[in-house]
Amino acid sequence: MSVIQEVAKTRGAARETRKGDGKAAAIFLAPWFLGLGLITAFPLLASLYLSFTDYSLLEAPSWIGVQNYVDMVSDPRWLKSLGVTFRYVFISVPLQLAAALALAMVLDRGLRGLAIYRSAFYLPSLLGSSVAIALLWRQIFGADGLVNQVLAYFGIQGVGWVSHPDYALGTLMILNVWTFGAPMIIFLAGLRQIPTMYYEAASIDGASKFRQFFSITIPLLSPIIFFNLVLQLINAFQTFTQAFVISNGTGGPIDETLFYTLYLYNQGFGSYNMGYASAMAWVLLLIVAGLTAVNFLASKYWVFYDD
C-alpha cells in the first residue's frame, strides 16, 4: 500500500506560492494572442453578428435582431437535430473512450509487435473522414454487408442497417467508436508518463491488478482522461463528415441522422440561410460551453494534478 500512498502524497504536497509571472506569460502567449486577435476573433465575432442578420451569402447581410433565435424554437427539424446529436454524444463518447482506454492499456507494454498493433488499430481513424467511408461502411452494415452475411449464417435475415431509420444512428455511433484511434494514442502517451516503479512497488506490496488500475492508473491518468472527455465531447457535438458522407448530405433516412452541424450546414450552404446557421452555431456553442463548464467543475472531484 505504501507506494500508492506515496503517489497520493506527491500529488497532495503543499506548494509554496509564487508571485505572478505576468511578463513571462506575455512572452509565452504572444503567438496565441496574435492569433486570437488576427485570426480567431474576427470570424468568431462576425458569426455572432451574422446570427442577428438575414444573410444569404450572396447579398450583404441585413439586421433582423433576434428573429433567427426565435425561429429556431418553432423549427421541428432543429429540435430533431438537437435530439439526434444529444443521443449520439451521450452514448458514443463514453463507449469510444472506454474502448480507447482499454486498448491503450493492452497496447501499453509487455507484448511483442506493439508498434504494429498500435498502427493497425489507429488506421481506421485515418479513414474516418474519407469520402470512401460511406462505401466502406456499406460493406459492413449494408443490406449485403458483412454483418448480414454473418447473420445469414445463423439463419437471421438482417436489414440494411445504415439506411434503416431505426438503426442508422446506431451504425454511426459504432463508426465513432471504431475510430477510437486518437483518444487511444493520447491515453497511450499518458500511460507512458506514469513511472513504472509505481506499479512495480505496488506489486511488491501485493496490490492486485484491479487495485493498481484504480489506485495508480486512473488517478495519474485523470488529467488525460479529462482531456479526452472534454475534447471528444466538443468534437462529438460537431460531428459532421461521417453523417454527411453516409447519408449523402440529407441526414436521412427521415432525418434520423440529422446531426446538429449537418442541419446547420444545410441551412447555411444549401438553403443560403447563413444568418440562421450562425444563430444555430451560437446556440450550440452555449450548450457545449455549458457542458464543458460542468465538466471542469466536476473535475475538481476526480482529476488530480501534480501542482
Partner: peptide, 24 residues
C-alpha cells in the same frame, strides 16, 4: 505561469473550437 485573467483566457481558448467551421 500565474498571470491575471488566466481562467478567462483559457475559457476563451476553448470556446474558439466550439463553433462549427461552417459558420466561421
Amino acid at each position: 505561469l500565474k498571470f491575471r485573467g488566466r481562467p478567462i483566457w483559457f475559457a476563451i481558448m476553448l470556446m474558439s473550437i466550439m463553433l462549427p467551421i461552417h459558420v466561421v
